[in-house]
Nucleic acid binder design. Structure first.
Lengths: 211, 211
DNA sequence: TGCAACGTACCGACCGGTTGGTATGTTGCA
DNA sequence: TGCAACATACCAACCGGTCGGTACGTTGCA
């Protein structure tokens, strides 16, 4: 659910190059449609290298979800919005960052785990579990913030339910973006969904009232 | 985005049986992972029959999205909630129906078009276009209702943006449901997301106020 | 210091099976 | 009799995965 970071260093080892190739190809065409041969060609390695580092294609899929989680979670735990004092503003700051990160072609801001879990939630338990950890792990980053906000604003709501709902909207926004005919419209569509989510939170926490 | 209807008549022609097989298999394992041979075995026909009715696997994919749209749109245009007079209640009635339809294994209530578009938005223009029409067509079913509600409640909002946001939450709920470890949790997860959506609408239209 | 033993990273030819798709019947109803 | 609706048999390409081998760095002992 995060774009390729602008100054991500070029991956050195064959293993990292294969995982980067996985991010790129699987976001664009899905897991099943991406062959081992394609991954190797994209990474500039041979099949020998692939099966030296990964037991199977399925193992790469599961590893990819973890790689994805690791390379994106730091992005959010270190981001400036984390310093905001008010817990609601912290969450809204997160959503502003997500909105800002949406741009370019859809496959550059969509989520690897969200794409993979659709294809493998019944056919591959290792991949499903890794994608689950990635998606729910991201949601968990905001349970504390919601708990704090609920306490401080005196609102009746469930922190973990709200955290999950944020992920729901983000993942859903990526799907709707993929329906659009142009990259520009896809970007606008995804951003608008997150604005609705922000609107929901401001209404829910009573910062804004309906007329 | 609709479950198999309980009393859907058994498909008679080979073509319909193949499309029904497509719904079942593609919801469970995705488009690319579903082979023509599997489709034929599930439908109880041979490859000859498949290629008699469909020019290619891709053609079945695109046709499937249309078949899906046709067999589900009627479900909503004929449903009782359509008779509700208040436009907001009509929309909330729709969401109640969607919530009620969520049940059983995830692949029985998830969306074929939402699943397919993730895999083919870049690799198959016919499938993408058909999935787009299916998803946006469903969203369009509620633009009028939202326009009416906005006028009657005097709220500042965009009807088509809200309709799309409903689809976003529905599609996102299916993805999050697929992360869950059990069918029961998946059902609860998906329903809760739609409850948040209902909550957003009641807050937005001022029927409920935050404390 | 020198060198044998070993581990890791990687190569690319190859394998059996599966894939989407085709060519050629056969069947049964209008 | 003709033609749509199937079935059967088959194909070349591609699939995930294996395997024997190489290049090279590290270790440990005489």
């Amino acid at each position: 659910m995060i774009p390729n970071r602008p100054f991500r260093p070029a991956p050195l080892s064959a293993r990292d190059r294969l995982l980067e190739a996985g991010v790129k190809l699987i976001r664009r065409q899905g897991y099943a449609a991406t062959s081992v041969g394609e991954l190797c060609a994209e990474a500039g390695v041979t099949k020998g290298a692939f099966f030296h580092h990964f037991e199977s294609k399925e193992a790469l899929g599961a590893e990819l979800a973890r790689y994805w989680s690791n390379s994106t979670s730091g992005f959010f735990t270190d981001a400036p919005f984390r310093q905001i004092e008010d817990p609601l503003d912290r969450i809204l700051g997160y959503l502003d960052l997500r909105i800002a990160l949406i741009g370019g072609p859809t496959e550059s801001f969509s989520c690897v785990a969200g794409t993979m879990i659709q294809e493998s939630f019944r056919s591959s338990e290792p991949i499903r579990a890794a994608c689950r950890d990635s998606i729910l792990g991201n949601a968990n980053l905001f349970v504390e913030d919601f708990a704090e906000a609920i306490a401080s604003y005196g609102v009746d709501a469930d922190p973990s339910s709200l955290s999950l709902h944020m992920q729901v909207v983000i993942q859903g926004a990526f799907i709707l973006a993929k329906t659009q005919d142009s990259d520009e419209r896809a970007v606008a569509m995804a951003r608008e969904s997150l604005l609705h989510l922000k609107h929901y939170l401001t209404l829910l926490f009573g910062r804004e009232t309906a007329r």
